[in-house]
Amino acid sequence: MTLLDFLNFYLVPGIVLGAIYAVGAIGITLVFGILRFAHFAHGDMTTLGAFVALALVGTGMNPWAALPLAMIITAAIAIGVDRTFYDYLAKRPKIVTVMASLGVALMLRSVVQVVWGVDPTTYASGIVRPNDYFGILLRPRELYTLGAVALIVVGLELFLRRSKWGKAMRAMSDNPDLARLSGVDNRKVTMLTWAIVGALCAAAGFMLGINTEVHSMMGWHLLLPMFAAAILGGVGRVQGAVLGGLVVGVAEELSVFILPAQYKAATAFALLLLILLVRPRGLLNGKVL
């Protein structure tokens, strides 16, 4: 196998997949870090976001133009889910909210299955041939995916570091009591967090859908790699989630060298157990709950 073959058939698909995991993992790490619970409905919220985009594409919109709109709609749905199902559990032990989120996962998925059915579908049909960039083969949609992920990550980092509300979010992640004493409005930060998380879910679901296909279980299968990525990078660390996502994506593609291809999905799990065993704080020193 030549170096170019390795790049084209293993590394590039791994990076594209990893970039998608990264977007999902950022959402998980934000909920885990700021609201302090493992959000199990994250995968199925991703599915819902992908199907919202599908509905928009169905009205004749260009898929990439539909993405921002789908992100806004899913952000609103995420805020609604929090208000309806998580908010009133705030005073109870956090693990009860984890359980509620498992129920929400099932509910979101059955909504998708009732409304859109269970058959896989795509945003755009037809075969797209990859373009050659100095020997590296990339399809336009892969290029757009990497560009969109870069845009999202840089934008989010700037927001968290520079803006007032971003700083409030980080303050709540670091020390909620101190944040409250300093005048940070918990309710508003919670709402803002869910809006960002919902938008990220839609982006991850859409990009997975446009690179593979759209179906009702897609998000559930994302859950394990996304959690592995978030914990691998360090809970609460956005850059960690990106790093973790890329590691998990590339590791999954490379796993075919040592494991039968059916066990690709097991790679994320192996990485998760490994990091919990040797360095539970994650690569970039996140939180341990």
């Binding site: 493992a38 956090k94 693990i95 959690f227 914990i231 999905a265 097991a266 998760l272 709950l289």
Partner: peptide, 23 residues
């Protein structure tokens, strides 16, 4: 591996175990 941490981690790991067993 997981019981040293809060139960969230056990939940993630057991979801993983169930998936691997299915695979």
């Amino acid at each position: 591996i997981c019981l040293r941490f809060r139960s969230d981690y056990l939940a993630i790991a057991t979801i993983g175990v169930a998936e691997i067993i299915r695979l």
